[in-house]
């Protein structure tokens, strides 16, 4: 709680990152590591996954915002994250509207009434 608080990280397309950086969440730390990743057409899934995992490992990040279509690419990594900090938020992108049925958190909530929960 002490200090300046935590950062908000973004993994998204150019416009999403530009928008959030305009909002003032961007940071380049002393090691020149940014808290955002602009995903282009040629960005590999491995790179996205590594960046996501590095954001999870950083203790100065409180929330990770990720475009849902990118989240779909690394769904296993998102589903494996069970801690509440950093919180992972899936957001829509220009070409892909938000679909609640794909959201990790809502799927977890939906699974509440399944038989597996009572075992």
């Amino acid at each position: 709680m002490a200090g300046r608080g935590k950062l908000i990280a973004v993994i998204g397309d150019e416009d999403t990152c530009t928008g959030f950086l305009l909002g003032g969440i961007g940071e380049l730390n002393k090691n020149r590591k940014p808290n955002f990743l602009v995903v282009e057409k040629d960005t590999s899934i491995t790179e996205i996954e590594e960046t996501f995992k590095s954001f999870l490992a950083r203790n100065d990040i409180g929330i990770i915002l990720i475009n849902q279509f990118i989240a779909e690419m690394i769904r296993h990594a998102i589903d494996a994250h069970m801690q509440s900090i950093p919180a992972v938020l899936e957001i829509p992108s220009k070409e892909h509207p938000y679909d609640a049925s794909k959201d990790s958190i809502l799927r977890r909530a939906k699974g509440m009434f399944s038989a597996e929960d009572f075992r």
Partner: peptide, 20 residues
Amino acid sequence: QVSALQYASEIEPLVCVHAR
């Protein structure tokens, strides 16, 4: 003129999130 190429070389956050 509005692209990732325009981002500054030194970026400091203006907003932080506190988790309690």
